[in-house]
């Protein structure tokens, strides 16, 4: 009796399947619970990895809910790579479609924030421009420049107060107000950071990150947009690596 790894794997991820035949306890009896050690190891190790990646989602849902949901997720979506630092990239999409979590519609965006923070942690090192570099651009050329962003930088748009929710749960900040917030993830130095992006600023920053010139991006400014506030935020977060 040859045990194929396909059969071994299928039963690992499906608790309703029996252990594959051909495995024993060393004394001729079926492996039984001994096979379950591997089953348990796989689900626990993958659930732990998910928990490490999404501490705020876990806090929002509570331990019990999170572990039960993780069990469903890891069986349906085992990693596609041995780099666990990438595991859970489709977790926000899973959350959006997970019926028991429908009462908390902000969860997928909060999960995107956590993914972006982890990506930033591992992102390539990049030297930011000096804070004075923008001041050296002649005023009549300012509208023509394009910004290059550090590999750690990402922008998570949302209709929910994701910055406030993340801050309240990860840092013990005040309770979030029910407003639309987007979030900028960057990495000044070695520690990822999260900054609030208001709805009036979001289209400008989105355009800049897509390669638009500053002049074209400014045409998209919404209510309350403040260019100097945005630029000093980007500079302080080490988000800009070049002016082109």
């Amino acid at each position: 009796m040859t045990v194929q790894q396909a059969d071994f794997t299928a039963a690992l991820l499906d608790p309703t399947r029996a252990a594959p035949p051909g495995l024993s306890d060393g004394a001729g009896r079926p492996a039984g619970k001994r096979y379950d050690v591997y089953r348990n190891n796989v689900v626990v190790a993958l659930s732990d990895a998910l928990e490490t990646a999404f501490p705020v989602i876990r806090k929002l849902l509570g331990d019990q809910f999170f572990r039960a949901m993780a069990g469903v997720y890891v069986r349906a979506h085992p990693p596609a790579s041995p780099l666990m630092m990438h595991y859970g990239a489709d977790f926000p999409t899973f959350l959006a479609g997970f019926p028991p979590a429908q009462g908390l519609p902000y969860l997928p965006d909060v999960a995107r924030v956590e993914l972006a923070l982890r990506r930033a942690y591992h992102a390539a090192d990049a030297a930011p421009i000096a804070a004075t570099a923008l001041a050296e651009v002649p005023p009549d050329r300012l509208g023509d420049i394009r910004l290059s962003f550090a590999p750690a930088v990402s922008l998570i748009p949302s209709d929910y107060p994701i910055h406030g929710i993340w801050t309240a749960n990860a840092m013990g900040g005040p309770n979030p107000k029910p407003v639309a917030e987007s979030a900028l993830v960057a990495r000044p130095g070695l520690d990822p950071s999260l900054s609030l992006i208001t709805p009036g600023t979001l289209p400008v920053l989105t355009a800049l990150m897509s390669g638009a010139t500053l002049g074209d991006a400014l045409d998209l400014a919404g209510d309350g947009f403040d260019l100097s506030a945005l630029l000093s935020l980007l500079l302080s977060q080490g988000a800009i690596t070049a002016l082109n």
Partner: peptide
């Protein structure tokens, strides 16, 4: 040991005959 099957990484050290 093995840990990957069919591009699924199982994050455990699985046994061999």
């Amino acid at each position: 040991a093995w840990s990957t099957h069919d591009s699924h990484f199982l994050n455990d050290l699985l046994p061999l005959p």
